[in-house]
Amino acid sequence: MVDTAFIVEVIIIWIKVVVVALVLFSMPLALTWIERKVAGHIQVRLGPFRVGPHGILQAFADMVKMLFKEDVIPDRADRLLFKIAPLLMMVPVFAIFVAIPFGDKVTLPFTDRELTLYISDMNVGIIYVLAVSGLAVYGVIFGGWASNSKYALLGGLRSSAQMISYEVVMTFAAVGVVMLANSLSLVDIVRSQSGGFWHWNILYLPVGPVWFFIFFIAGLAELNRIPFDLPEDEGTLAAGYHVEYSGMRFAFFMLGEYVAMVSISALAVVLFFGGWDDPLGPFAFGIPPILWFVAKVMVFIYIFMWIRFTLPRYRYDQLMTIGWKVLIPISMANVLVTGFMRI
């Protein structure tokens, strides 16, 4: 049953996948530069300035440096696991973007073909995203285990404990959103929030902001970013799970972390900030929805960087306390309240 329409459909999906993958691969280049600039300006410095105008080519210089570095594998490392760990970290975070909707349907110019600005509208999108993002922790654990180094192992173990605690919290936050939207599909979740910022889940008072904060804190922990960057705690673990990695393998870890940051930002936008929805609703003045989506994601990325250069790192027991004793009880209470509100 292979006809032209089917082939065109397959080609379009291929093109979408390639475009998304290319954008995501080039993202860390821009993000490292932005992160260093934000760091610089928060610390009243300028950040990178010498490679290209305002140091904009710094990331390319770093990439070239990484490519030419020696690929060191420690003596008694588990060679197979050591080699696949960076990929295990990287692949799931790319896979998340299969389900994330960047925009609604658009009509292609010169043809009547309708194009959806998401690769797939799964009816269980949110479960898929949570499951796949949970897989990324295997890269961290394997990297820590295979390095045959105490610091790396401790980093990996911390990461696994952190993931287990915060995966629960994050799933709770997702449950809250699902209760508000009555759907597991990310596209439907966005559609349920359309029509201006007062329809967004974040403003579904009083539970919306609470769900958002729970999601945001859990997201910070999932990303291993300050204040929850215990797996790569410089002070006590040198560099944590990637202490033995160098060159391109290390770059893969960094790539994974940055793309994960984009994915959590995108997820926060989709779940709480109306995705591609125009905040002005009926008074919109024609900015394409996809640009709104990108702008919202950029704001979130800035917030992640801003927090990174503001807060100190939590202690390990504090991290666990926040997860199990604060966030989970609040989530449970919030499920109850949300349930009553939706009756």
């Binding site: 928060i42 801003w306 927090i307």
Partner: peptide
């Protein structure tokens, strides 16, 4: 406390840098 800290860093982020190029 978080808001206080974040407002301080935001203020620095928007202020002029003291780097001599």
């Amino acid at each position: 406390d978080f808001i206080k800290g974040l407002s301080i860093t935001l203020r620095y982020n928007l202020s002029r840098s003291i780097t001599i190029r």
